[in-house]
Design a binder for these strands. Structure first.
Lengths: 159, 159
DNA sequence: GGCGGCAATGATATGATATAACAATATCAA
DNA sequence: TTGATATTGTTATATCATATCATTGCCGCC
């Protein structure tokens, strides 16, 4: 069962990527949307790292094989991937990350290490229900949320 | 007791502003840092709205009375105000908001209305302890966090 | 008071992130 | 095949943010 839940643990990351791409193809087929070559390539580039990656860094990578790539090329692919729940944007870094829980509801919770830069996506019921309770207490109805927790991952604490 | 906890409730907002500026002067005196004219003016401009405001919108306002104002002018003031816990940045909007709980620890929790744009700062123990629990479960040590909840405020739900 | 050091601001330039608008091409169903 | 729609190409520009160095202001110290 690849798509390891922890970027901190060592693992064969090429399996993560293949798995993510495989899931993406399935999802897109189910949703009847087109995972075109550009979109798939961008998703692959995003999955090559457990760190969020910026749009212009992606562009630089993409441009190596796709000479015509320009900012809109990347941003369109990113928009598509977000709309279909395949990636998340880390708002506090203007950077993008593969979604570790495709298919589910789509607001992530992220643990972002301030040393190594990895971002681990979690999906903790205790967090979402706390948000729900707190919001209700203020008469507020949730549509979505941004949860970005900064600190030290297990590995970097031991350095 | 001004500095109302809910921008949704009607209130005399000029009191909010005066109160915020008064608190800011106190804090800066205590911390032995200078709340200069520019910094105070920027803080006042930020407090004129319960909506997060962008740096260039602030610049436009500031420039009306301060002809020399340029982007660095604003960003320096914003940095100072953030460093001293007087404002927050809303990461998902690249915009700034007065801090409703000056003096305390400094990561906010925000309820942001997708209709009217107001952002209410809350400080719910249930949320912070849920984040703490969830992080610990993953061996992660929290340094700070970004919590931005989007949805409908009480007022806009009734429209 | 004047002088030296540091904090704050001025000024210019540029970097980094993101989108608008329209043209050209590809895909696919009828 | 053709027409409708989605995708990509292309150019330009909007928006957000910082680097750098010069100048000014503040304040303690002699």
């Amino acid at each position: 069962m690849p798509l390891t839940d922890s970027p901190a643990k060592p693992h064969d990351h090429s399996l993560c990527i293949e798995d993510a791409l495989g899931q993406a193809r399935l999802i897109c087929e189910q949703r009847n949307v087109r995972l075109t070559a550009i979109r798939e390539q961008v998703l692959g580039l995003i999955w090559q790292s457990h760190k969020p990656i910026g749009a212009y860094d992606l562009l630089e990578q993409l441009a190596k094989t796709h000479h015509a790539a320009k900012p809109p090329t990347i941003y369109r692919a990113l928009e598509f991937l977000q709309d279909n729940g395949l990636i998340h944007k880390i708002e506090s870094q203007n950077a993008f990350l593969g979604c570790a829980h495709v298919g589910g509801h789509h607001h992530g919770q992220f643990l972002i290490c301030t040393i190594c830069g990895t971002a681990q996506e979690i999906d903790e019921k205790i967090v979402s229900s706390a948000l729900e309770n707190a919001s209700q207490a203020h008469g507020f109805r949730i549509q979505s949320f941004v949860i970005e927790i900064k600190g030290l991952c297990a590995t970097c604490q031991d350095l």
